[in-house]
Design a protein around this nucleic acid. Sequence first.
DNA 1: TTGTTCTACTGAACGGCGTTCACCGCAGTA
DNA 2: TACTGCGGTGAACGCCGTTCAGTAGAACAA
Lengths: 213, 213
Amino acid sequence: MGVKERQEREREAVARGILDAARELFVVEGYQNVSIRKIAEKIEYSPAAIYGYFASKDDIFLALAEEGFRLLFAGEAHPPAAAASVDRIRDGFLRFYEFSKTHPEYFALMFVDRSVPKISRDWARFGFVREMRATMSAGIQSVIDSGAFPPGTDAESVFRILMSAVHGVAVLRLCERLAPGEDADALARDTLEAALAGLRAGITHTFRPVKCN
Amino acid sequence: MGVKERQEREREAVARGILDAARELFVVEGYQNVSIRKIAEKIEYSPAAIYGYFASKDDIFLALAEEGFRLLFAGEAHPPAAAASVDRIRDGFLRFYEFSKTHPEYFALMFVDRSVPKISRDWARFGFVREMRATMSAGIQSVIDSGAFPPGTDAESVFRILMSAVHGVAVLRLCERLAPGEDADALARDTLEAALAGLRAGITHTFRPVKCN
DNA sequence: TTGTTCTACTGAACGGCGTTCACCGCAGTA
DNA sequence: TACTGCGGTGAACGCCGTTCAGTAGAACAA
């Protein structure tokens, strides 16, 4: 009587195959050069068959972006063994930068590619991203509480600022907009360090907490 | 006898028309949705005619990216009226961020879009970008010399770090990767300010000058 | 077993894309 | 007037994402 279940499993296996094929292709060829026809060929189905599993090409890559976030958080969510400290914050953001290097195409899908359907729209699907982000902010808050930042520092702001700093370098590197020979890794460390030092020293100019929606 | 000259002028006028049409279309529709056929329709030529002026679609957008850089620098190169100061550095990078808002599609072409042929490859064509960058570094150096940064601070590093910081926010905003309601402008100011404060306070962790190619 | 229903899949097609190429009309030249 | 060369065209090639009528075969009902 497990017919329905078996069919369900087969469906999922095929969907899995489509995603795997899509990922392997787009790691090598880039989003623009992956076509439904190539994916279909790789899994030995007709192009039309894919539309029985995903509504569109964008839908496939939205699913991959979701995988990307889970992958990113899997690395991030390691047991917070070490006590809350500035070092842990630093390491967290450096891991984010490393992720952009080890999984450049996932990173592009998640944070750079504008041709991929907007992620921020899909509220329900990417809710876990917001949760993860809240967890990180809480971690930062505990470091603030320990006195490593000026009193009254806003954890969300710290998160956003450090994120922006590291993100900037990651994109410059990914899009090959750095001068040849420029050391992206050192730049990532230095930019993060500068922002971190600025936050710890207290910003002196126009700083004020950024209100959250 | 000005036949050659007139023909030359006519050629340039048509090329100009192609670029204008391409720009107007891609400001509205985005790079991916601008086709040679649409450009051709806009200038009332056949699609094939365009290939008499540009070798490929990418070539057209490379030309637009070049225009973008000239546009950016036109705003940047205003007479350095005010004396060298930290404020001038801050304003420079904030202008860069403003550019990403007022000319988002140019900015995308220049710094984000990975489908556009790599700019860093075209050494000769974008040599003026490197020159401009050197000029800016020199400006920063003069501020360093005035004592606003710890002695021995490297101007190139300062440039890169501040650039990365602002660039990060600009891309996050452009790619709609910020939470809805998040104030991108404030984030840009804060991130820049944090990096700037960090540099002025002296980075305490792993900072060292990044060697240029 | 037989007949029916359902579903996963296919082949063909539609309208679009970037790009190429044989060809043609016409301005410029001799 | 005859020739030359260049700018521009229409048609085509081989891609693309997507849709849809149709079909083979599995699941189920009688």
